[in-house]
């Protein structure tokens, strides 16, 4: 493992598999126990540095760190010195001076975790940066797929929606490719980046053509505001062409699963009956997120300092 987890490309097949295996072992070790806590990272400090509101991701990392007995500091950009104009670099150096061993960062600017990693000695974990990457989300998605389907090699994954603005899509394309899955991106051309042809993924504009062959359908959140910038004409048209409703779900194979990184726009990209169906892994993904993040923190912090 590298010292930081900044993007999915930081993980080769061996590393990615190690994270998933470690997460599975941690989950097994903790299942059915009353005491859901391990002493592994006692005396180590993990800072959650969140420049964007993301309660679910922050809580997931916080729980992961606490279950490994690390001390956790939540540093939210709101109501702190950051909102008074302190630079990211000054904040990073301050946190390091206070003895942080790892910084988990969520930031609205693509690349902020990379820059942070160049300024601090401790480990940096990207918890989502702008429209770039969200590697732990991809890891928990891969974990969920492997858990449900028993494998990743050769699994056909359709990633549907706003790929252009999605850090989840970028991380998943890279990680799933590393793990041997076959990814097809499905979106209107306006929501695919120029340059998507260089990604290790197929591209389709036609959801109905892709669904029958998919083992996994990963729906991305589509913000209605995109409509105002003419990425698509209306929410209704988007939903009609790219939304997953009960009719489309019926086209899926028997074992196919439906995923969503949350938060969902029910009725927009995903219908309520799909989100709540037995195919849906949405709640499972959240639970798996804690195990996967524990694995990442253990693998980054559990050994000798680099």
């Amino acid at each position: 493992m590298k010292r930081h987890l900044l993007e999915a490309a930081d993980l080769d097949l061996a590393d990615a598999t190690l994270v998933l295996d470690t997460a599975a072992q941690i989950e097994a070790a903790l299942s059915g126990r009353e005491v859901k806590k391990l002493p592994t990272l006692r005396g180590r400090t993990v800072v959650n540095l969140f420049y964007e509101d993301s309660t679910r991701t922050r809580i997931s990392f916080e729980l992961a760190a606490k279950r490994l007995s690390a001390d956790v500091i939540n540093f939210s950009a709101k109501g702190s010195s950051v909102s008074k104009g302190e630079s990211l670099k000054d904040t990073a150096l301050t946190l390091e001076a206070m003895g942080s061993d790892a910084i988990v960062i969520r930031h609205g600017a693509s690349g902020a975790p990379h820059q942070l990693a160049s300024w601090v000695r401790g480990s940096v974990v990207n918890a989502g940066d702008g429209t770039h990457e969200h590697p732990t989300q991809a890891l928990l998605d891969a974990y969920t797929i492997r858990h449900r389907l028993g494998r990743l090699e050769g699994v056909r994954v359709a990633v549907v929606g706003d790929v252009l603005h999605s850090r989840v899509a970028r991380s998943n394309v890279r990680l799933l490719h590393t793990l041997g899955a076959e990814v097809t991106l499905v979106a209107p051309p306006t929501l695919l980046p120029v340059g998507v042809g260089s990604w290790p993924a197929e591209v389709s504009y036609d959801l109905d053509a892709v669904l029958p062959k998919a083992d996994v359908v990963m729906m991305l959140r589509v913000q209605a505001e995109r409509m105002n910038a003419s990425f698509f004409p209306s929410a209704r048209e988007y939903s009609r062409r790219y939304g997953l409703d009960a009719r489309r779900m019926a086209a899926l194979g028997d074992d196919a699963i439906v995923m969503h990184p949350g938060p969902m726009n029910r009725g927009m990209e995903i219908a309520a009956e799909v989100a709540d169906s037995v195919r849906s892994t949405i709640v499972e993904q959240v639970g798996n997120g804690v195990s996967v993040r524990m694995a990442v923190l253990y693998l980054l912090l559990g050994g000798a300092p680099a």
Binding site: H132, V194, W199
Partner: peptide, 18 residues
């Protein structure tokens, strides 16, 4: 826009300047 729009902007998640 943040950088040239192409393969690299797609990968880096930076808004492209066509």
């Amino acid at each position: 826009a943040q950088m040239h729009e192409g393969d690299r902007s797609a990968k880096l998640g930076l808004t492209g300047w066509p």
